[in-house]
Design a binder for these strands. Structure first.
Length: 495
DNA sequence: TTGTGTTTTATTGCCTCC
DNA sequence: GGAGGCAATAAAACACAA
């Protein structure tokens, strides 16, 4: 009797919980944002898969995307979007005067010149594979600009944040694209989506060149110097810049102290050292060693954090301000030894578990389900069991440990997750992030730290003082950003 | 601790397209 | 007519200042 009534009450409670508005977990939001970056208009199949992945209903997914688009639009509308506004990604001053504006995820109803039909853009992405070889190269470039343009939006919250990453993300998004379309489950599934997504050089592509020119020009101007045609290749480990790699400066005393583009470039040791030979006994090393055997991704590159932070730094400080909440994650980076690292699982569980409704019962994702889904799965929707979702309170120590790398910037509002992260298993990040958010630390606490880090990095950039990097005590936050910048703004510039 | 403002989520209605 | 999307609205969750 008691049991039944108890069960009944629980059922009732669950039912009420379901009615109640429930916040998406950070991991869910992250996954959604991530997906949103790739597909602003997901197909039915995508939605359902996403729903399965995240333990949400399709309705919720649809609603979320809908609101997300609205948010994008709203934000972009709020933004004056004046010509020459700075690209949040790379600090590139975009030439909006060319008429390319930034697409918000905008509705097709809007004829605002700033909007580029997202569906069109997306279709181009989806069919990137179909591009002529010649186009592919240029398209790679275009992707950067596209994203840049595509990023108008979200100043606030996640959208902006992730978009800040886009340039860096882009190179990977190309890849993402590949797996999404070639062997990923998405493309084959998107019967509807693909149906209307034939590639037609219209809209954005029409003005692509203009965009590129404007962006490149802006970047060059910002850098204050020009690369030579045979400058160092980007996107790879940099050797010391060859003497005379640059042409004479473009008389901009203000940027004089800067190394061209990215100071880090001139300090290859910093990058490689960071990536390959972290200080002995460092957390990174420990994690890396652990990861190396299990996570091939981690072997390819440094922690996703690297990129994430870089994005943040690339972002204008005024933008950084907003939604500092998520920046906090990055902040935790610098304080690897801080208590932030010492959170325990129970905190999170206590904080969040009680809020969860019984409907889904799953907040996190299996450690690599998301990633696998959209990258390696052959297009078949795995069974639910296959996802073996990680319950919030079921985050295995291993996962948690692995995730520590990504602790920082993955979040809805400050989506600084690196492109790597995207490919390395969002779920891993998600698990970690959920955990992170769940830890007893308040966002406020973390925020302070992050702020500090940001200020440091900004100041550092201004001074072009890299001595700290050389002393070996540098934090990821301090160095990584530069690398990001390199990839984000310079790479495409030179590419 | 509380009040207030902001953000996020859910719902509903209308519109457009197929 | 159904599906999908946008827009408006309400309400919950959250952040923050006093």
């Amino acid at each position: 009797m008691e049991e039944s009534s108890e069960a009944h009450s629980e059922e009732k409670k669950a039912s009420q919980d379901n009615k109640k508005r429930r916040l998406k977990t950070p991991s869910q939001v992250m996954a959604l944002e991530k997906f949103y970056n790739e597909h602003k208009y997901p197909t039915e199949e995508m939605k359902s898969e996403l729903a399965v992945q995240l333990g949400l209903t399709e309705k919720q997914i649809s609603g979320w995307f809908c609101h997300r688009r609205l948010k994008d639009k709203r934000v972009s509308k709020d933004e004056p979007c004046a010509n020459g506004r700075q690209d949040r990604l790379s600090g590139v001053i975009q030439d909006l005067g060319s008429g390319l504006g930034q697409d918000s995820c905008g509705s097709t109803k809007h004829v605002d010149y700033r909007y580029v039909d997202p569906r069109e853009v997306e279709s181009q992405r989806l069919y990137g594979n179909d591009f002529p070889a010649a186009d592919l190269t240029s398209d790679k470039k275009s992707l950067y600009t596209e994203r840049g343009m595509d990023d108008t939006s979200s100043e606030s919250s996640s959208s902006l944040q992730d978009r800040l990453l886009t340039p860096i993300e882009d190179p990977h998004s190309v890849e993402t694209f590949r797996y999404l379309t070639q062997d990923g489950p998405i493309a084959p599934l998107s019967s509807k989506g693909t149906r209307t997504m034939g590639y037609k050089p219209s809209g954005y592509l029409k003005v692509k060149n203009e965009i590129e020119n404007a962006a490149i020009t802006a970047v060059k101007r910002q850098l204050g110097k020009q690369y030579q045609e045979d400058g160092p290749p980007l996107g790879v480990e940099f050797e010391a810049l060859p003497p005379g790699a640059f042409e004479s400066p473009i008389r901009d005393p203000v940027h004089e102290p800067y190394y061209v583009g990215n100071p880090v470039l001139s300090h290859p040791l910093n990058i490689s050292g960071l990536k390959k030979q972290p200080s002995p006994g460092s957390r990174y090393e420990i994690n890396n060693s652990k990861l190396s055997s299990k996570d091939p991704y981690m072997q390819q590159e440094g922690p996703g954090i690297i990129h994430g932070i870089g994005h943040q730094e690339a972002k204008p400080s005024n933008l950084m301000r907003q939604k500092s909440t998520y920046i906090d994650h990055a902040g935790s980076l610098s304080g690897r030894n801080s208590s932030l690292d010492n959170y325990d699982d129970s905190s999170y569980n206590n904080n969040h578990h009680h809020k969860k409704s019984s409907k889904h019962g799953v907040e996190g994702m299996s450690s690599d389900s998301f990633h696998n889904r959209f990258s390696h799965h052959s297009g078949k929707v795995p069974s639910k069991q296959a996802f073996s979702r990680v319950h919030d309170d079921d985050v295995s120590p291993e996962i948690v440990q692995r995730s520590e790398y990504f602790k920082p910037p993955v979040s809805a509002r400050n989506y600084c997750e690196a492109p790597d992260m995207e490919e390395r298993g969002i779920s891993t990040i998600m698990a970690q992030e959920d955990k992170f958010f769940g830890e007893g630390k308040t966002r406020k606490d973390v925020k302070v730290k992050m702020k500090h880090v940001n200020e440091m990095t900004v100041a550092k950039r201004g001074k072009a003082d890299f001595s700290q990097q050389e002393n070996g005590t540098n934090s990821y936050v301090e160095i990584l950003p530069h690398k990001n910048n390199t990839k984000g703004s310079v790479e495409f510039l030179l590419d």
